[in-house]
Structure formats: structure tokens, C-alpha cells
Deep mutational scan, measured.
Amino acid sequence: NKEHILAQKEVLTPIEYEHYVKHLFDIGEITKELYIELSS
């Protein structure tokens, strides 16, 4: 869920976080809207 993803932002580097969010989007775990929101 969104809270879990945002928690990852605390422990990952910005680049790792971007890759993580992109991966979730690629596998269909999150919607495009959520992907855009989380990567901003």
C-alpha cells in the first residue's frame, strides 16, 4: 500500500526509490496515477 511504499523512501536512496516505484508500476502493483504521485 501507499504507506508501505512511502516508508521505503526513508530507507532507499532517491535513485533506488525511483527504480522501486517504477518496478511496482511495471508489474501492475500500482496505478499510473499513484506512480506519478509517488515519484513526484
Score class of each variant (00 low, 15 high):
39 S>N: 15
32 K>G: 14
31 T>M: 06
39 S>W: 09
22 K>M: 12
37 E>L: 09
24 L>E: 02
9 K>T: 04
38 L>T: 03
5 I>H: 08
22 K>T: 09
26 D>S: 11
12 L>Q: 05
16 E>D: 14
31 T>Q: 05
1 N>G: 03
36 I>V: 13
28 G>P: 00
10 E>W: 07
31 T>Y: 05
19 H>A: 11
9 K>S: 07
22 K>F: 12
33 E>M: 08
14 P>K: 14
20 Y>T: 02
31 T>G: 15
33 E>F: 09
29 E>M: 09
27 I>Y: 07
30 I>R: 00
13 T>Q: 09
20 Y>M: 07
4 H>M: 14
20 Y>H: 03
27 I>M: 15
34 L>T: 13
33 E>T: 06
19 H>V: 15
39 S>D: 07
32 K>S: 14
30 I>V: 07
23 H>I: 02
22 K>W: 09
24 L>F: 05
7 A>H: 08
38 L>G: 00
4 H>F: 14
14 P>E: 14
14 P>D: 07
14 P>Y: 12
11 V>A: 15
18 E>L: 14
26 D>H: 13
24 L>H: 02
7 A>D: 08
14 P>G: 09
31 T>A: 09
16 E>Q: 10
34 L>E: 08
33 E>L: 09
7 A>Y: 03
21 V>S: 01
8 Q>K: 09
12 L>H: 03
17 Y>I: 01
23 H>L: 08
11 V>L: 04
10 E>Y: 08
24 L>S: 03
24 L>N: 02
38 L>N: 01
38 L>A: 04
5 I>F: 10
35 Y>H: 03
27 I>D: 13
21 V>P: 00
29 E>S: 07
19 H>W: 11
38 L>F: 06
21 V>A: 02
6 L>M: 14
18 E>I: 13
27 I>F: 06
3 E>L: 06
20 Y>A: 02
27 I>V: 15
10 E>R: 04
10 E>K: 06
39 S>V: 03
18 E>K: 12
39 S>R: 08
14 P>A: 13
20 Y>D: 00
23 H>W: 12
19 H>E: 07
25 F>I: 02
7 A>K: 03
38 L>C: 03
3 E>F: 11
25 F>C: 03
26 D>G: 05
18 E>R: 07
22 K>L: 10
36 I>R: 11
26 D>E: 12
3 E>V: 13
35 Y>G: 01
28 G>L: 04
14 P>S: 09
27 I>P: 00
35 Y>L: 10
9 K>H: 07
33 E>N: 10
12 L>E: 01
38 L>P: 00
8 Q>P: 00
5 I>V: 09
28 G>H: 09
20 Y>L: 11
36 I>Y: 15
6 L>H: 07
